[in-house]
Every structure is written in C-alpha cells, then in structure tokens.
Amino acid sequence: MKRLVPMWIAIIAGFAMLFSAFFPATESLGEIFGDAFNVIAAIAFVLGAGSLAKVNLEKISRKDQGWGYAVITLICFVATLVVGLGKIGAHPNPNFAALPWSGEIQQEGAVFQWIYEFALVPITSTMFALLAFFVASAAFRAFRAKNVEAILLLVTAFIVLLGRTFAGVVLTGWLPDWASGLRLENLSVYIMQVFNTAGNRAIIIGIALGVAATSLRILLGVDRSWMGGGGDK
C-alpha cells in the first residue's frame, strides 16, 4: 500500500501528461494536472520554509555551535513573512482603493520591497560575485598544462578570455583581412559555433536519451528508487 499507491499515482499522472502531448482530446487533462502541479509547487515553498524553521529550532533547543545565527535566521524569516503576508506599507490598488489588501506587495514604499532592495539584492548578488575571486585562485592553482587534453582546455580558455574582450582586438587586430579568421575575436566565435556546439550537442543528446529512459522506467513502474528504500523493484 505504501509503495503501490504512489507508484500508480506517478504512472497515471505521467501517462496523462504524455498523452496530452499526442491526443488533443486529453489536452485539458494535461492542463489540469499541470495547473495542480503549479499550485503544489507554491505550497512546496511552505514545506521548505517549515523545514528551515524546524532545523533552526532544533539547533536552538540543542544549543548547537552557532545557535545564535539560527536565532537570526528565524527572526529574519518571521519578520519577512509577517511584512509580506501582512502587506505592511503597501497601498491599495488605485483601481480598487476600497480594498486595503488589494495593493501589490512589491511596490515602492512597502516594507517587503525594502527587504528586497536592501537585503535580498545586495546579499545574493554579492554571494555570486564572490565566485569571481575563487575562480581566479582556482585558475592559478589548478590550471596545469599537464597533457594534450589540458593544453586544449587552456588554449581554448585563453582564446575565449581574450577574444571576448578588447584585448583580442589589441593583440590580433593587426592581422590582414585574408587572415581575419585568426583574430582572437573571430576564433572565439568559431570555437563557440563549431567545437563547443559539437561537444555540447553530444552532451545534450546523451542527456536526452538518459532522461527519456529514466522517465520511461518511472512511467512503467520499473524504477521505484525515488520512493526510497533502495532497489528498483
């Protein structure tokens, strides 16, 4: 029962989506399932948030190392939730001014928007920006011309790094027109359109075969590993 029902739910839902792509009569079924999926995805945010709260509360109750940061996480979580769900600072929609709750939460002046602008934007974008430093350090330590493969990788990286900036023009812009194909900016385009396209296309085709095979195994009830407990059957 615990494994049979989920297996049949997956099979029915999967085949409904599959058929909806081929038979117009089943299109609406695919649409309904798709729409239900979207709502479940939104509810899943609650699950994620609940898990976060649970983990942090446990950390605090156990007084784990760094539990103070868990308190900060929880405070920020609750505060954002309150100002967002409560639409604090948001004005009503001018079209429906009689309804105080009709306003957009992400409007200028709303506290939720303030959090977006002054916490979410700077922190997330700086976190990603940090990688520029680490990639530089990694390039210094790990990019070694050890063999033919590594040399190919290095040379390509050089061409792309220089060819995609003005350095390419400065270094090879003097080449005559008949040799313009060897200019770094043109070489980088050639690499992208020929070698990168071929390599990535093979990867895409390989992944497509893998995804199709895995999906088919799920739809046929052969692959049940997603239910946990190990084993396919």
Partner: peptide
C-alpha cells in the same frame, strides 16, 4: 555569518510569500 543567516531566513520567507500571493491566492 550574520549576513548568511539573514539571507537564509529572508529568502525562504520571500519565496513563500510570493508563492502565496501570486499562485495560492489567485489560483
């Protein structure tokens, strides 16, 4: 560490709030 803790809490709640107002309420 403080900033990291802030973003974990804020982003989880942010996605939840958007999911509620943009999908759960209208749909």
């Amino acid at each position: 560490r403080f900033t990291e803790a802030v973003i974990v809490g804020v982003s989880a709640a942010y996605a939840m709030v958007l999911g509620f107002w943009e999908t759960v309420v209208p749909k």
